[in-house]
Design a protein around this nucleic acid. Structure first.
Lengths: 231, 231
DNA sequence: TTCCAATGTGACGGATTTGTAAAGAAACTC
DNA sequence: GAGTTTCTTTACAAATCCGTCACATTGGAA
């Protein structure tokens, strides 16, 4: 679960945004709890910092600069919030190392989108773009498979194939469907390409290769843990 | 019965997809009936929205964004359809909160699969894909039989045969009907294939083999618990 | 009971499908 | 353009499934 540090001075933002982010499955920290002066106080680094530039007490620009200087926080992406929409401010913000920029007023929905966006780039974690079934985690953006914690190297064709299978766990995907979906072939073309890729995919899945089951003269089927015999 | 709202501008999509979905046991609504401007007009919320991005008149992205902003519709999963397969568009779509994404051209079959897929995740129901009678549970998607908790391996022919029998528990299926339905044979062809498969099926059903009864010179009949001779 | 047609049963051969490995073709990288 | 990676095709081996046969058994009609 990604952690987001919110640095601001306004109660309303804290409530609105934090609640929203938490509902979307993020963990939030607040400046008061997470920062001492301009230094990060928590043990665990947040995955993203939401920084409000318009803070009555402090100077957001300075905070940002300091965050960037500190080796512990310099790599953490920053999403900046500002009241004015001045172009210079925006440029300054991006110069300072902000990863994205939002002008008030904004909808919480949009904030969540931008947060997701940044995290996708930096963590390749995004609820909408990953498919998780059992030990399998497929990330559609990075085209990577994490299997039981280990990263497995798949080619793009293998990835698409596995994705097609895994998107409907337990369901038999007909050969024609797969050829259509993965290769864009017409459904009744005669080729052994599919078989070959299935074999290679199974090999790369190692012990989990048996999760890809053959349904003779129909197609293939992905069987995850929940669909295993005795599920 | 899950309701699906289709937001598009094309007659063909409406007909093709809607008819297919309805045949699969879903109820469909159309944008014209279900949306006023970008707001949901119907009383009953749909369980899923199928949104076509390529609409001559409207801007699909905007429609999507608005749907997401409206608290009444923000939680409803969206399946996006698009003509181009551009990655940015895909990412934009997912950012906007679409739950899945399909690029035209696609097969209606695949659409149904994805719809099922999303609904399974969100509603954890799957319309009409399983037939349950007594200890027997047949899943048309996975082509698997669960019998008294145990998974039984059936070939696709055996599966079709059992399905034909079990869809009308207690009713006698004539040999001709079965040959027609399972093998596509003409009804009065002379063959022992049916007998052989019945035998193999019974063997695989083990103790439950007796649920498949012979009706001499007519055909076969599946007898579940409630239809057993002995109450 | 006797007889006959229908069905059960086991085994076989063949056809089809899939697994597997390796080689050729295409795409991509440097 | 050489070398690497990935994809596709090809060829052969292995597995699976199917349909038919021969024979045994059953059940009902005469």
């Amino acid at each position: 679960m990604p952690t987001i540090l919110i640095v601001d001075d306004e109660e309303d933002l804290r409530d609105l945004v934090a609640q929203r982010l938490e509902r979307e499955g993020f963990k939030t920290l607040h400046a008061a709890d997470g920062l001492t002066g301009q230094k990060l106080a928590t043990k665990k680094k947040p995955d993203l910092i939401v920084l409000d530039l318009m803070m009555p007490g402090k100077d957001g620009i300075t905070v940002c600069r300091d965050l960037r200087k500190d080796s512990r926080t310099s790599k953490i992406p920053i999403l900046m919030l500002t009241a004015r929409s001045g172009l210079d401010e925006k440029i300054t913000g991006l110069e300072l190392g902000a990863d994205d920029f939002m002008t008030k007023p904004f909808s919480p929905k949009e904030l969540v989108l931008r947060v997701r966006n940044i995290l996708r780039r930096t963590l390749s974690i995004d609820a909408g773009s990953t498919v998780e079934v059992g030990e399998f985690r497929l990330d559609k953006n990075s085209l990577k498979l994490h299997l039981a914690g280990e990263e497995v190297d798949l080619t793009s064709t293998e990835f698409k194939l596995l994705l097609s299978l895994i998107e409907a766990p337990g369901t038999v995907r007909e050969r024609g469907e797969l050829l259509q979906q993965v290769w864009g072939y017409s459904e009744q073309i005669q080729t052994r390409t599919l078989d070959t890729h299935i074999k290679r995919l199974r090999a790369k899945l190692g012990d989990f290769g048996s999760c890809v089951e053959t349904v003779r003269s129909v197609g293939y089927r992905f069987v995850g843990p929940s669909d295993q015999p005795e599920g």
